[in-house]
Computed example of a mutant assay.
Amino acid sequence: MSSNKETFGKTLGFVVVVCLVCAALVSVSAVKLKPLQTANKLLDQQTKILEAAGLLELGTKDGIVATYEKFVVAKMIDLDTGKFIEGDAASFDERRDARDVTKSIKPANDIAGINRRANSSVVYLVRNGAGTIDSVILPIVGSGLWDLMYGFIGLEVDLNTVKSVVYSDHKETPGLGAEVLNPKWKALWPGKKMFDQQNAIAIKIVKGGAKKDDIHGVDALSGATLTSVGVEKTLHFWLGEEGYGPFINNFRDGGLN
């Protein structure tokens, strides 16, 4: 009997030691890998911003970073007033602030299905070779079929004409909602107008396909009605008064230069 107890005790001790060693290894790995994960996340963000600005050139990591640092300036804004504010744009985390009730609001008209909206945001001002701002990149987030989808709107300096709509993070169905990443669908956006002549939001996703002369219409994603509706509602929310509307009103028609 004592022999069995001794064997059980040794086995239990061995298991405990193995668990402690494995936990230590996982902790050490997580700590050591965090800087690399942070750097990769930043590089992906910079890549998507350059794509939204029409400046993405295939190349090395250093090439993307250099292009971003040369042409892009990130600035914090207060979403309620649309004015620039002091703040560290590099460390700003929209998802973190949106979860903090002291740094976010619950939208009165939450058509994007985000639940809470951070009080602040980052806008990316993109300058050309002459140093003049020629496009603005606005981060967006809204519900798709399965979860929130994160992306960027690239607008020309009139804050109306689309340069690109780029999604960077989503959980949509491959071959359906995930077609937001399809280059053919993204190619439909450049030149479209977000607002009509009365400055009302006019962009729409058209089931069955938009007419060629429709400057506000973009083809819906085939077989992905709910994702398409989500994209349209996301754009209408973020272009509206509870999104970037105040910022757009402040700087519309080249007011940033």
Results as ranks from 00 to 15, higher is better:
59 G>L: 15
104 S>Q: 07
110 D>S: 05
90 A>I: 13
53 A>L: 04
48 K>R: 07
24 A>W: 02
24 A>Q: 03
73 V>K: 11
30 A>V: 02
59 G>V: 14
80 D>T: 00
58 L>N: 09
101 V>H: 12
86 E>C: 00
47 T>F: 05
40 N>R: 00
107 P>A: 11
116 R>Y: 03
25 L>D: 00
38 T>E: 13
55 L>T: 02
83 K>V: 02
31 V>H: 05
119 N>E: 10
34 K>R: 14
33 L>C: 00
89 A>K: 06
82 G>V: 06
35 P>G: 06
88 D>T: 05
50 L>M: 07
119 N>S: 05
53 A>F: 03
73 V>G: 00
70 K>S: 01
76 M>D: 06
23 A>D: 04
64 I>T: 15
25 L>H: 00
60 T>G: 08
114 I>F: 10
97 D>E: 14
46 Q>R: 15
21 V>G: 06
79 L>T: 04
72 V>P: 09
85 I>F: 01
115 N>I: 06
118 A>S: 15
54 G>H: 10
43 L>H: 15
48 K>E: 13
31 V>R: 13
97 D>M: 04
72 V>A: 05
89 A>S: 15
65 V>T: 15
40 N>Y: 02
96 R>A: 12
99 R>K: 15
65 V>G: 02
56 L>V: 00
45 Q>F: 01
49 I>T: 08
111 I>S: 10
49 I>D: 06
